[in-house]
Simulated scan of single mutants.
Amino acid sequence: MKGQEWYQEDDIAEAYDDKRFSGGGRYIDRREKEAVLDALAPVDGKRILEVACGTGRFTVMLAERGADIVGMDISEAMLEQGRAKARAAGVEETLSFLQGDAGRLPFPDNHFDAVFAMRFFHLAPDPEGFIKEMRRVTKDQIFFDTFKRYSARSIYNWALPMGSRLYSTREAKELVVGADLELADAAHDFIVPYGFYRAVPRWLARPFRMADTTIGRTTAGDRLASVSYWDARIPE
């Protein structure tokens, strides 16, 4: 099954958060939210678009912090999960969820202060086209993540039920430059890949995450990391 077809299945949406962010997966959730907040802060009053918002983990988090945010996704089943999160958090009136195609964003040029996409580019069939469309609708910032080609991620990538694209550092930087953006910052993490953390209980994941973080602070950490976070800006 192709990535987009797999992603839009109802049962995938219903189990998405529990499968990925419970147990040891909580370390993934925590780090990804930290990365988004660090890149986009301050968010209060900022107009933000989340592309491929999925179940609304980040959309709701940013709405709670005062962002004027739209979450867009191709999967209506995922958006329903996001709307339920927004109702539970009491922010359903302060954000919008929209079904749409990331290749044709239904917004005018320079409409947002920032656009971001997490867990998107590994499934993107046209990453160059998508990032150029994201650039079109922002007047300042694009933030996104990629899975690294030369890392432990590649060991189990073949076993995933959907297609998954891995990027070398050079390829990710070429995406940024090809969209006429400048790389403002980059961070790399998770020497032990996501799949391990999702598969083990939290108590077992904890010492691995501590070791992972310690190694990540060394010069070898960036080279061994399986995930990269990219903060790109429109040149002045």
Rank of each mutant, 00 (worst) to 15 (best):
L105G: 04
A39E: 05
A86D: 01
G195T: 07
R31F: 14
S168K: 08
M61D: 10
E80T: 09
R206E: 12
D189H: 12
D222Q: 10
E133I: 09
D73E: 06
N157Q: 12
K173S: 07
S164I: 09
K2A: 13
A172S: 11
P127W: 02
E92K: 08
V137Y: 03
R136Y: 06
F147D: 13
G90I: 00
A52Q: 05
I234F: 06
E171D: 06
K85N: 03
M61I: 08
Q4S: 11
R233H: 09
A211H: 09
D222L: 07
F116R: 00
R30K: 15
A187R: 12
F130R: 11
P108A: 02
D140F: 07
A205T: 12
R206S: 13
A172M: 12
F196I: 01
R57P: 10
D11W: 13
R170F: 06
A159G: 13
E76D: 15
K148D: 15
L175K: 07
G100A: 03
E92C: 01
A187Q: 12
L166P: 02
P193M: 04
G178Y: 09
F21S: 00
S164G: 14
L166Y: 04
V115C: 06
F21P: 04
D140P: 05
G195P: 14
I155L: 15
V51M: 03
D126G: 07
S75C: 10
I69A: 00
S168G: 12
P161L: 11
A152N: 14
A39P: 08
H111I: 02
V227T: 05
D18I: 10
W158A: 15
A67C: 03
K173G: 03
K33W: 06
G24M: 14
C53Y: 01
K139Q: 10
D29I: 09
T213E: 14
E64D: 03
H122Q: 08
A152G: 13
